[in-house]
């Protein structure tokens, strides 16, 4: 008798608690996204694909000092320097092997010229392995910029310095 009573309590009182939870979710909005069509905005500090920054006049910021290559834990960066006609140093070859890259962001942290930064894009799939070795031309930001340059500068400043105290 006791066994039967226990079973009855289980079936009619305890188990339905769980059913109520699952039933409640029928009426809730789904939290999932319809991914390739809908995309989540990534955080400002998100470490996606690499960009090489330019000065306002379009010259490259990178001076090929090699700190990013030294800081890279995966040894994914290769570079060769050259000298411009007016005596400045710049990169002749700058390659990042995206198959080796672990997107740790150490290159961005190491760069003393703020030349390299990691952007928001994260979809890299391709059929060809060679296409994952990105050269300088693939990573340089377009000049003149298509989007509002002011926004990007603000974002970079925020990424590097954090948010100013007044904005807290």
């Amino acid at each position: 008798m006791k066994e039967i009573l226990k079973a009855l309590i289980n079936v009619f009182l305890k188990m339905p608690q769980g059913f109520v939870v699952t039933l409640k979710h029928v009426f809730k909005k789904p939290v999932t996204l319809d991914y390739p069509r809908e995309k989540k905005p990534m955080a400002p500090r998100y470490r996606g694909r690499h960009y090489l920054e330019r000065y306002e006049d379009g010259t490259e910021r990178c001076v090929c000092c090699g700190l990013c290559a030294a800081a890279c834990p995966a040894d994914a960066i290769y570079m060769e320097p050259e000298e411009t006609p007016n005596g400045e140093r710049k990169a002749k070859v700058y390659e990042i092997n995206l198959l080796r890259c672990i997107f740790c962001g150490f290159c961005e942290e190491a760069c003393p010229e703020e030349a390299i930064f990691l952007g928001q894009e994260y979809e890299f799939s391709d059929f060809n392995r060679d296409s994952f070795i990105w050269r300088k031309e693939d990573m340089l930001v377009p000049h003149p910029r298509k989007d509002n340059p002011f926004k990007r500068i603000i974002r970079r400043v925020r990424r590097v310095y954090g948010v100013p105290d007044a904005a807290r």
Partner: peptide
């Protein structure tokens, strides 16, 4: 994690002597 460190799983947020960013 994403807001602090910039990556969703492999955060690498802590550094020797502090944090990578505020």
């Amino acid at each position: 994690y994403e807001a602090c460190a910039g990556q969703r799983m492999m955060s690498t947020y802590f550094r020797i002597g502090g944090l990578s960013d505020d």
